[in-house]
Nucleic acid binder design. Sequence first.
DNA 1: TTCCGACAGTGGGGTCGCAAT
DNA 2: ATTGCGACCCCACTATCGGAA
Length: 537
Amino acid sequence: MLLSEIAAASEAVAAASARRDKIALLATCLRQAAAGPGADAPVVAAWLSGRTFQRRTGLGWASLRSAPPPAQQPTLTVREVDDALARASLLTGPGSATERQIIVTSLLATATAPEQRLLTGLISGELRQGAAAGLLVDAVASAAAVPLASVRRALAVHGDLPDVAAAALEGGASALAAFQLSVGRALAPMLAAPAPELDAALAKTGPAGVEWKLDGVRVQIHRQGDEVAVFTRTLDDITARVPEVVEAARGLTAGTTIMDGEVLATTATGRPAPFQVTSARVARRDVEKGRAATPLSLTLFDTLHVDGDDLIDLPGSARRARLEAAAPHLVVPRHLVEDPSDAAEVARAQAFSADTLARGHEGVVVKSLAATYTMGRRGAGWVKVKPRITLDLVVLAAEWGHGRRTGRLSNLHLGARDPEGEYGPPGGFVMLGKTFKGLTDQMLAWQTERLRELAERESTWVVHVRPELVVEIAFDGVQRSPRYPAGLALRFARVLAHRPDKPAAQADTITTVRAHHVVEEEDGAVTAHGSEGTEQG
DNA sequence: TTCCGACAGTGGGGTCGCAAT
DNA sequence: ATTGCGACCCCACTATCGGAA
């Protein structure tokens, strides 16, 4: 199959707006890939979902910066391109980066303009065709003429879209049925939808368990005897980096099992360490030293398989019972709410939630007692609730947006007042991070106009403005930063509202921001840096 | 007809290891 | 030794489509 056929399909998908049309175009291309000579279907399925076939190629934005002019005639085949990407992905050691760049450059030089757009989209990970893995699942079902649910289920238990697509196209429903939940093979973890408050969460779930939400790294643990494998949320295998988890898994009473949980670094006093600490430990390759300096603890909150029994189609309450039997010492604490319409019950759940936060955890997850384990979905079965902090900050600059935000000033640079001049001239501002979130199209249009009026100087991407526009910002917390001048940055900042009515002189100060920075002292005591700030929002 | 679930897109902060400088 | 890059970890939110209510 020719690359140009995929490029043409991708262009058509991008041009279509209706999902049905996109799915039909994807399905046609998939059928052609399956019907043609060679085994192009898995690779084509990956590309049509916006990804390279290889999980990691070592290629990214930087390798695309100086693209050669496009070729006039399409000659590249799917096979050739995939082979080239596979070669690039396997390169390692001195000279490998140079060699990878040569591969990319020669690919692009052989590609026509539409093919270059496809290749750069795949390599950068930003194909922007309005279809990704989600729509491709629909397209696979359509192309193979099998029920959508059968494709979804195969994908959920197998985890690999190209494999599932190829099986469906070649063997239809019976081939899909062969994909079964298997201990040792990672599957898409269930996700939680957000809710602003506990009562809203309970309204969604009905009778539920309210659990601690730990601010660590999600792990899916597979154990078969002494064989243990540990996967992350994106199914990355991190077994070698978390020996504590492997040992804990070997200690379970269940000899064959799949468990869902969270790993977390803790301080000497057992309080949760900041996320950055856990993240650094899990990423670290030097496990010996990592473990000595930052041991990890494991907490489990679900189980998908125990000793021959698949549990994913059981209600949450039944899975919890199996979990408690198999791992009583590792189960996450929870509070039961049997009747969400009972105000007294809700109040007790609120108290549990407040206690959870007081212990230093991120929030709570409300889990329906009735819901099955819906893999890879963000349904109403699990709902997370986290506290939110709000501050009024000042826009220092803005960056031009990409994609559908092209031509709009999108990403805002946020600063707090620095009246004492700790980080510059007194009465100035100190940058705490950026945000592009929470903006409606109307807000984008408005701020583009307003910030242009305030513009002081511009570079290619950034418009620096007079610090006059105040924005109300919500965020989850203040974290240590190696990047910003105050050594602090906002976590998950988003815009709630523009405040043109509020003078910058009344915006919040760096002292107020610092008060929200939770610091773990050596003795384990927890203090907010400086005076106590105003919590909640 | 209106509502709501699922998706894609638009990027944020931090950290590591590796190759290049 | 430092810097740049890719690949991960954690994400929030809006617009849109299309089926459900």
